[in-house]
Design a protein around this nucleic acid. Structure first.
Length: 215
DNA sequence: GGCCAGGACACCA
DNA sequence: TGGTGTCATGGC
């Protein structure tokens, strides 16, 4: 079923080419800034950081929280996110002297545990960093994914993040490129047609959507 | 004017 | 352990 869904999404939307950034640290910053925010606004915040030459761990450590907050204001929650970026920058220096290649050299479980120990990095943000920045195979679960999985009747009994993640990782090969595209396609679907039930009629998954089947 | 957007954390029962 | 409030701007 999960393979079928992937194929339908790929046929409908095509490759999404995520993450919309090249630099590893920029991906990490973007993963934090996109928390409960539209990517369009995250892009403005990242552009501000670049323009101010502030998109590096050392620059973020140098700036005051208020200065970081002013730069990332467009993506919302700027005070809390400024603290999160500062925490990340300080942690990187303390543990890895800003050497991201060394951070990403460990296995996935160890890397995930380390990322989760940083203030402001929860399961989804950690997994986004592992998948998109470290290029290691782990499936990212977000609100769109939960909503769509529920809509097609595959929601696990346990509503936890881990349960949703296991659903995908136990039924798909451990392939980072597949996880990358799959997550991006689910977000694409969620943004386009799955926000409200009536729009399911336009969805490429409509024939397997529980809402349509029951209505 | 209201709703939502690629969450995480602190607090409480 | 699970539920709830808080953080906040910008686009539609």
């Amino acid at each position: 079923m999960l393979q079928t869904i992937y194929q339908r999404l790929m046929d409908c939307y095509g490759p999404q080419h995520w993450w919309p950034a090249q630099e590893t640290f920029e991906i990490m910053v973007g993963a934090i800034l996109t928390q409960s925010a539209a990517w369009q606004n995250v892009g403005k915040a990242i552009a501000n950081l670049k323009e101010d030459d502030a998109l590096s761990p050392e620059a973020l450590r140098r700036l005051d929280l208020s200065e970081i907050g002013a730069l990332i204001r467009p993506c919302g929650y700027y005070n809390t996110k400024a603290l999160k970026l500062k925490s990340l920058a300080c942690w990187l220096e303390e543990h890895y002297d800003d050497r991201l290649d060394e951070l990403f050299a460990g296995d996935i479980a160890q890397l995930r545990q380390q990322l989760l120990s940083i203030h402001g990095i929860g399961p989804e943000t950690a997994d986004s960093i592992i998948l998109y920045a470290a290029d290691k195979p782990i499936f990212v679960i977000d609100a769109y994914t939960r909503r769509i999985v529920g809509r097609i009747g595959l929601a696990p009994d346990n509503n936890s993040y881990a349960a949703y993640q296991n659903l995908f990782m136990e039924h798909l090969p451990a392939d980072g490129r597949l996880y990358n595209e799959y997550h991006a396609l689910l977000v694409c679907l969620g943004k386009n047609v799955c926000r409200t039930h009536p729009l399911c009629q336009q969805c490429c998954l409509n024939s397997i959507c529980q809402f349509n089947a029951n209505s």
